[in-house]
Design a protein around this nucleic acid. Sequence first.
DNA 1: CCTTGACCTGGAGTGCACTCCAGGTTGTTG
DNA 2: CAACAACCTGGAGTGCACTCCAGGTCAAGG
Lengths: 137, 137
Amino acid sequence: MATPTTNERPTEISLLTPGEMADRTGVTIDTLRYYESEGLLTDVARATNGHRRYSSNDVLWVEVLRCLRATGMSIDQLRHYCRLGDHGPTTKPERKRILLDHRALVASQIDELRLALDLIDHKLEQYADTKAAKGTN
Amino acid sequence: MATPTTNERPTEISLLTPGEMADRTGVTIDTLRYYESEGLLTDVARATNGHRRYSSNDVLWVEVLRCLRATGMSIDQLRHYCRLGDHGPTTKPERKRILLDHRALVASQIDELRLALDLIDHKLEQYADTKAAKGTN
DNA sequence: CCTTGACCTGGAGTGCACTCCAGGTTGTTG
DNA sequence: CAACAACCTGGAGTGCACTCCAGGTCAAGG
């Protein structure tokens, strides 16, 4: 965003190769390509040889994607959300709504997991005086 | 478990038909059969016509299955856990270990979800002064 | 007696989200 | 210049957990 004072080619500062991007974000190259093909990641830059170059914005966005995927938002919903982003600020209310809805969903997932924890603890009482085996198997 | 004082056929009191079982547990008939075929549910009683009859123990156990599945234990791991149960009390330590490991996993899932919640909230700040759209879409 | 509904079996099909592959190009390195 | 690593594309394959289906049995109701 800030214009650099040097005269190095500005947009190529700190662009990541696919491999680097995979390392940074924990998302495999294949999955990055898949997300792009599904419209979850748009306008990825290319080097002159055709190889992808990911910006720091891309890194940030992929982290958001990861977070939303990890919390159960489907590729389809994500695609919808992304398309809204492409259509400018008039879609802001809907995007906010989607995020709020998803937030509620995550909150309820947490509640469910806490209940599960209770049930597991209750089940564990059956083994109260038993030493646990060493290996995880 | 308690012996009834009446002389009604004891084991047929309150056995559930597959349909009733599905209603009670929220697990479909197909999935119940699938779990049985995968060894997650053993010794299900049968009526004289060959139809399944589920005991209250089965109900309890299916609730445990649901909980463990919902928290990410795979069918494979569940099958392993069940097999241990079939092999008597010498496997108790390992069963306890599995449950403890899974408990830790659920706890870490909760942590992850909380982080996700933070990220979503942070993202929501971008829409701070925006009214959310009404429909869920 | 005929239909209906709930269930049975073995096996095929589905949806999702990747994940892998073949065949090819490019750029660096010894 | 040869070999290698990293990347490209379109498309096929995978794994998981169901979910559905065809064809059949059985008991009760009209």
